[in-house]
Design a protein around this nucleic acid. Structure first.
Lengths: 189, 189, 189, 189
DNA sequence: GATTAATCGAGACGGTACGTCGCGTCTTAGT
DNA sequence: ACTAAGACGCGACGTACCGTCTCGATTAATC
């Protein structure tokens, strides 16, 4: 498919691409969101500014590309024997993802930006890693024999919504007991 | 308390204060978050920029002051006879608040900014109108005789979290049937 | 006249104005015309870029304001007893002005830029210090009793044109003898 | 000499060379000096940028090559019977060359650039078409029997300097009467 | 005819200046 | 003391052009 677009000209530099993604991630983690400017990213990456603008149209796109793979990996847990363990492990992972992981910081920044900028909202609505990961867990639990009524969308929202809301709005840091309680509540239906 | 500090000199202008609050709200609603700059607010309010900085230290403070009262009013519903109606009315109101109301737009903007800026996060953690309104509803339902196990924080998060998450992350527009389903799910415990 | 425009707001900073003019002159002399960028001027002057753009619309305007007074001073010679001495002194001064003086470098840069940019051409056509200085000399010589036929414009062009042309196009460095010869030629009419 | 260095490999494309020269000229005339960029020339010529840089090291070189032949042709007049006619025709031609002709525009641009850039100054000092054409006229007039004292350089500068200076510095548009007057002045020695 | 080598077009690369905009501060005159 | 006005130093914005560097494709002279 990309082979059809084989054109002349110097090919895109993979080095530059990776340098930009790493620079964006580093800036976000080390200097904070405000310091993650297009100019700053380009300079830290040792890349021309035009090169950044040529391939990404906003900070959000860079951040999404920089963090999506990490986020997916960090939100994925090996299968557990029981539904309870499955859910509990997922919620614990989600909690540390949102409060500690670099990719989680990026996810929160993206979700935040989406409230300001409709273009980012569209971007995020297309590929929401968090919802995807939750849907996977739901599917695995169902495959394990447990009956859960409700459509997938609703269930994923019920699984992650309460935890995400408390973290986003109150900066909550859930304890192991909190996670256990949430797990029981979720399965109590 | 301000009365004790009555000093001589020109008193603070209430006109200027209201003009700033209205200008901020108008800009957010009509021009979007990006256009809601300190400079723009001052100009639209017909107010000196220093006057803005003298009384508010950030856009978030202005927005909070401009929208908190409206948000509280819009999220408050008259008591309903049954717990089911109570919850359903609240969720319906919350849904339209977040997707249609000006104050809801402001709330989302604040929640978004809080993911980028710790100072805004603190501001919001102190007075989260959404959590407060949900806690009121929970209290009313309990006063109505229904037993709900779980602490208030957990219950409010379970009440609003799923809906809020789907709206924030996917731009969801819940239908009446969706609200009814969520209500039943919440009460099914 | 400016008193009528007395308005509110912080008044223009004379420090900033002078810093910009000196920075422009320094850059031109020390680093060359190519280094005399708006950005470079602002940085060397320790001034915001907006401040430069607020008061001058182009490098040419800055350069004109920075060099006009110096140019006028350097092209003005004390009255001499004879017409021959008057002309010779002026041509010698003009020669060193164009080939050595900082203000002369600025004048050449402006004249050069005028060939590229009609706006600079208009600027220069309005106040050409070189023509003015030559006209003064012509007037003094006439006041001294010498009859010179031809209108002022033509005479000034005949006085300075040959010398200027050779300097601009060939980078000529006239000797004392060259100046003497030009003087005799000019008066030989 | 280039013939001896005939190596194998693809030979230089004459099409590309002409396309570049025409593109440069077109851009200067139609869009102005500021639009005559290396990038713009290459694009308009339908030529790779490297091809331009391979054969010319600056815009000035392109412009010189693009305009020199035209300039020479336009400044050359057929011999006239009298010295007066010879000079008058040359000055009239020079006037229209500088104020109307495309090649004249290129010449002025080069002369202007030479005031900013020493490399262009050297380029122009080597082959100044205007001085050459004037020298030819002087030579013809002398061959016609008229005695003109002064070396060639001085005479050519006296012939063209006044006119060129007024055009370059004031944007003068000489009339036929002006040219006639200049002619008489020049021959009045 | 196959190989070789310099050229061609295209276009991405790291840089840097452009002119604008918003930041938060400051300095006026006026109320 | 507070107000509106507006200039200040600062720095990011997104764009344009700089001159260089790969690419695949051409085009002769040489093998």
């Amino acid at each position: 498919m990309t082979a059809t677009t084989r054109s002349h000209g110097r090919p895109r530099s993979e080095d530059a691409r990776l340098a930009v993604l790493h620079a964006a991630d580093d800036l976000l983690v080390q200097e904070g969101y405000a310091a993650m400017t297009m100019k700053g990213i380009a300079e830290r990456a040792g890349v021309g500014r035009q090169t950044v603008y040529r391939w990404w149209s906003s900070k959000a796109e860079i951040l999404l590309e920089a963090s999506a793979a990490d986020a997916r990996r960090e939100l994925t847990r090996p299968p557990a024997p029981t539904a309870h363990q499955e859910i509990a492990a997922f919620l614990a992972g989600l909690s540390s993802f949102l409060t500690e992981a670099d990719a989680g910081l990026a996810y929160r920044a993206l979700l935040g930006e989406a409230q300001h900028d409709p273009r980012v909202a569209d971007l995020l609505a297309g590929t929401d890693v968090l919802t995807e990961a939750a849907a996977d867990v739901i599917a695995r639990v169902r495959a394990g024999g447990l009956t859960l009524d409700g459509d997938d969308r609703s269930l994923t929202a019920e699984l992650v919504g309460p935890l995400v809301f408390r973290i986003l709005s109150q900066g909550w840091q859930p304890t192991a007991a909190d996670v256990e309680a949430m797990t029981q509540r979720f399965l109590q239906r």
